[in-house]
C-alpha cells in the first residue's frame, strides 16, 4: 500500500518533466472551448447551463484520454524500465493502481482548468451549480473509465501507436454501445436481454444521466466497476506477459 505513493509521485511528475503535460492541457482546453462556443453555439442558446459543454466531453475524451493512456505501459516495455519496475518489491496491483491514479489525477487537473467556463455561466446567469458539480464528477468518472480501458490495452503492447488506435476503437464502442450502429449488428441474432446488456454499457447513457443532475448510484457503480474490471485485466495481462 505505501508503495503506491512513490510510484504515483514519479508517474505524475513524469507528465510535467516533458512538454506532454502542457501540450495536452492546452489542446484539451482549446478543444473544449472550440466545441462549446463554435460547434455548440454556447452563447446563442441563451441558456445559463453547461449541458452543451459537457455534451462534448465523451467525444473529446475518446481521442485525448487514449493519448494519455497509450504510454502507461507501452513506454515502459519499450524503454526496458518495465524490467526495473517489476523486479522492485512492489505488488503488481499497487503498481497498476498507482499508474492509473497518476494519469487520472493529471486528467482531473486538465478538467479542473476548465473552471473559467463555470465562472462565465455564473456571471451571465443563475445556473444550477449542483447540476454542474454532478456533471464534473460524472465527466471525471467517465474519463477514468476510458483511462482504465486504455491502460489495459497499453499493457498488451510495446507499440504506443497500436495502443492508441485500439484504445480509441474500444472506447468508441463503449461510448456508443446504445446507438443503432452497434445495436443493429446484434439485433438480428442476439436475444433481447443481451441487447439490453450491451446497450447498458453505453457511456453516453450513464454520463447523460449524471450530467442531468441525477446522481444515481447505479451510474456511479457502473463507472467504478468498469474501472475496477479493466484494472484487474491490466494486472492479469502484465502477469501473463511474464510467462512470455
Amino acid at each position: 500500500m505505501n508503495q503506491i505513493w512513490p510510484i504515483f509521485k514519479r508517474e505524475f511528475a513524469a507528465y510535467f518533466a516533458t512538454p506532454l503535460a502542457y501540450v495536452f492541457i492546452v489542446i484539451f482546453l482549446l478543444a473544449m472551448g472550440a466545441f462549446t462556443f463554435y460547434v455548440g453555439r454556447f452563447f446563442d442558446n441563451g441558456i445559463a447551463d453547461l449541458s452543451v459543454f459537457f455534451g462534448y466531453h465523451p467525444w473529446l475524451y475518446l481521442f485525448l484520454v487514449p493519448a494519455i493512456a497509450m504510454r502507461l505501459w507501452a513506454e515502459e516495455r519499450r524503454s526496458g524500465t518495465m524490467e526495473l519496475l517489476l523486479t522492485l518489491p512492489v505488488p503488481l496491483w499497487a503498481t497498476v493502481t498507482a499508474k492509473f491514479l497518476a494519469a487520472w489525477a493529471f486528467i482531473a487537473i486538465a478538467l479542473a482548468l476548465t473552471f473559467p467556463i463555470w465562472l462565465t455561466v455564473n456571471y451571465l446567469g443563475n445556473p444550477d451549480n449542483g447540476v454542474i458539480v454532478a456533471s464534473y464528477l460524472g465527466s471525471l468518472l467517465m474519463a477514468g473509465a476510458y483511462l482504465a480501458i486504455g491502460a489495459c490495452i497499453s499493457a498488451t503492447t510495446g507499440n504506443q501507436v497500436i495502443a492508441f488506435v485500439v484504445t480509441v476503437v474500444v472506447c468508441f464502442l463503449f461510448t456508443i454501445s446504445g446507438a443503432p450502429l452497434v445495436l443493429d449488428f446484434f439485433r438480428a441474432w442476439a436475444p433481447l436481454p443481451l441487447l439490453t446488456a450491451i446497450s447498458s454499457f453505453s457511456f453516453l447513457t450513464h454520463f447523460s444521466a449524471i450530467s442531468a443532475g441525477v446522481i444515481d448510484l447505479r451510474d456511479l457503480i457502473f463507472f467504478f466497476s468498469l474501472i475496477a474490471l479493466f484494472l484487474t485485466a491490466n494486472v492479469v495481462i502484465v502477469d501473463l506477459k511474464k510467462s512470455g
Binding site: 511528475a13 513524469a14 518533466a17 516533458t18 524503454s79 526496458g80 524500465t81 526495473l84 523486479t87 518489491p89
Partner: peptide, 21 residues
C-alpha cells in the same frame, strides 16, 4: 515474490532507468 525481490539488488541488461528523472 515480494520477499525475494526485497533481498535482491538487480541491474538489468542495459541498465534501464527513467530518462526524464
Amino acid at each position: 515474490a515480494i520477499a525475494a525481490q526485497a533481498a535482491i539488488g538487480y541491474l538489468p541488461e542495459g541498465a534501464p532507468a527513467y530518462g526524464d528523472m
